[in-house]
Design a protein around this nucleic acid. Structure first.
Lengths: 156, 156
DNA sequence: TGTTGATATGTTATACTATAACGATTAGCA
DNA sequence: TGCTAATCGTTATAGTATAACATATCAACA
């Protein structure tokens, strides 16, 4: 699980962007400049960024500074699995396992706002059983866990 | 699990409000008129209501129509476990198991907006293991599953 | 080549969600 | 009674997100 360890960001970013690039080419999607830049921005942080944070950075990069510019790019990235939206934070984060079909789960540090993405099996556990019994058909299940990350635990 | 079945609302509401009333008296909390009315409103629907939906109803009931009136009551209800906030919908729902300490899980119908609350074991399953390995301490874990409820499945 | 249709962008305006701040009031209790 | 904390009334503003419409780009294809 990516998230709380230190690692080489520059590599991490360029590799991921390149992967997205290839995927889009294959799938007939357009990774336009704004979309690519937003993906780079998200990859540059292992924490969630609000749409307006991103918008601000885009503006400094010569893009238009209207909210739809950021929201459209984010919608694209989320729709195609390059990023996830974190409901609890009204914010967005780059996907840690792009290309793999998955329901994301997040570990959110309430102290430093770091975000780690993990896999969970919520839909197949107890919740899945309840849903099955009731006749509810689960299409997506996201888990957002709030707590304290290893770095912040050490520092208290 | 309460949620998708038909049942007697009037009983359901008065019983729950009474329970909240008793709990508050015991715990030294004030279930003031606005708080009580908001709880009743939430119990009257088995779906999530936005703060401004509630505010509108409060206004018709003679309460002040400023946002803080609704938010304060909702904060109180959520804090003490009488209601939950559903992040995905920016909305609130009455708790289906008040008095019991629990991390709520929700089944959200994307067609009719019905909400059912269930128990899950997200924090003790795969996600819990990952967290443990990493050193992340989970304090709360909420699951929000989107899908189609039994009633809407029948009607397609 | 020129038309067409789908996709993406620029831009303005507005809707929706939530909280800060401060003074007035009330409840519970020493 | 008088103190203290909790609650409420009110104004203002911050933060998040989308509607709507005009323009532009580009690939497919007659």
């Amino acid at each position: 699980m990516i998230g709380f360890e230190h690692h080489n960001h520059a590599d991490c970013i360029s590799t991921s962007v390149e992967a997205a690039d290839n995927y889009c080419r294959t799938a007939g999607l357009q990774l336009t400049p704004a979309r690519r830049r937003v993906l780079e921005i998200l990859l540059g942080e292992h924490r969630a960024l609000g749409a307006y944070d991103i918008l601000e950075i885009l503006a400094k990069n010569g893009f238009a500074a209207q909210p739809p510019v950021a929201y459209r790019a984010l919608d694209f990235l989320v729709k195609h699995g390059f990023a996830h939206r974190i409901e609890r934070l009204n914010a967005f984060v780059a996907c840690a396992h792009p290309g793999i079909e998955h329901d994301p789960s997040f570990l959110l540090c309430r102290i430093c706002d770091a975000v780690a993405e993990a896999q969970s099996d919520a839909a197949s556990g107890r919740l899945g059983k309840v849903a099955e019994t009731t006749g509810f058909k689960i299409e997506r299940a996201v888990v957002e866990a709030v707590g304290v990350c290893p770095n912040c635990r050490g520092e208290t």
